[in-house]
């Protein structure tokens, strides 16, 4: 594996292997010396054209724990704001000897362009591109589900038979797409829930069932309810009348949470709009995995960087 651009590219074995490596990386976080010398001398560039706190910091911590050098680069305050093209930026980074580029970009497919263009000979990690994919978020979600379900016996397991309801703004959500491909590769069954205006026009060929009714989805008792953030910044039209109506119909409030089976977990990729798609009660309950997701994000990103940057880049063990 040379790049991580989409969870569609991952085979079941590859995905499980990354989750297993992440288990080992999680152990490192509990040690006194939270650092491994594995990627010493490698340079990881965080190339963020969109705002982000947790993803960028998470990648930065992950790279630093593996002893790589990290260069943070955000579009604001860089030459990009003077109109530099992606090509010139990439070639500049290549000239500085970047071994991996973690890219977040507002345009779907920007990481793929970077990987295929030949502008730069580095491993490319997609950290979110437009409304397309966010593979490391999906991997950390799968890791979190597996950890909750199987605890310390997680290694080697997939997610066969797990039922997941992904709720909210499916249309604009790269998290939903990446999760859909990955979770179904791992054997879970996925249901997409949201208002008709926030569902893609066609979900033909998607390995998921679709419903408009959150109450029915909750009463079906899914193992996981994954809430998505309402992304006001991507909304160019009125997709629902007002926040209160959205919240009433598709928000995970205290009453809906109470109807879920005792073992069900509530996930949210963050940042949360409390009171809109998720109530504070739901976000802070025992079922909520929000903080686990953040902690696991570091382990997953360490595993991905290890996978991409160690080895000759050809076959993998």
């Amino acid at each position: 594996m040379r790049h991580l651009l989409s969870t569609k590219d991952l085979s079941r074995d590859e995905a499980v292997a990354i989750l297993d490596i992440a288990e080992d990386m999680a152990d490192v976080a509990n040690r006194e010396v939270k650092k491994l010398p594995t990627l010493r001398g490698k340079t990881v560039v965080n190339l963020f054209f969109e705002d982000s706190t947790r993803t960028r910091v998470s990648f930065e911590v992950a790279a630093k724990r593996l002893s790589a050098d990290v260069i943070n680069f955000s579009a604001k305050g860089s030459s990009v704001s003077k109109g530099e093209s992606l090509k010139d930026t990439a070639q500049t980074l290549a000239a500085m000897g970047a071994d991996a580029v973690v890219i977040r970009h507002g345009a779907s497919g920007a990481p793929r362009v970077l990987a295929d263009s030949g502008w730069i000979d580095a491993g490319i990690v997609n950290a979110g591109d437009g409304t397309h994919e966010h593979p490391t978020q999906a991997l950390l979600d799968a890791f979190t589900i597996r950890k909750r379900l199987h605890g310390s016996a997680s290694r080697g397991r997939a997610l066969d038979g797990v039922t997941v309801a992904i709720v909210g703004d499916i249309l604009h959500s790269r998290v939903a797409r990446s999760n859909l491909w990955l979770l179904s590769t791992l054997g879970a069954s996925v249901q997409l829930v949201g208002p008709a205006t926030l569902l893609p026009v066609s979900t033909e060929g998607w390995p998921a069932t679709v419903t408009l009714d959150l109450d029915a989805a909750v009463d079906a008792g899914p193992d996981v309810v994954m809430m998505l953030r309402i992304q006001a910044e991507r909304m160019t039209a009125a997709f629902f009348p007002n926040a209160r109506e959205y919240s009433r119909q598709w928000g995970l409030d205290d009453e809906r949470v109470a109807r879920l089976p005792a073992a069900s977990m509530v996930m949210h990729p963050g940042p949360m709009n409390r009171g809109l798609e998720i109530s504070s009660g739901a976000a802070d309950s025992e079922r909520s995995t929000v903080l686990e997701q953040v902690a696991n994000g570091v382990s997953i990103r360490m595993a991905v960087l290890y996978h991409l940057l160690s080895g000759t880049g050809e076959a993998r063990a």
Binding site: L36, T38, Y306, S310, G311, T312, E314, A315, A317
Partner: peptide, 21 residues
Amino acid sequence: LDVTMYRDDLAKNPTRAPGRT
């Protein structure tokens, strides 16, 4: 004690899955 992450030949061989510590 797994030593995979500390090996000096990681860059010369295919990626290896670490063992458990």
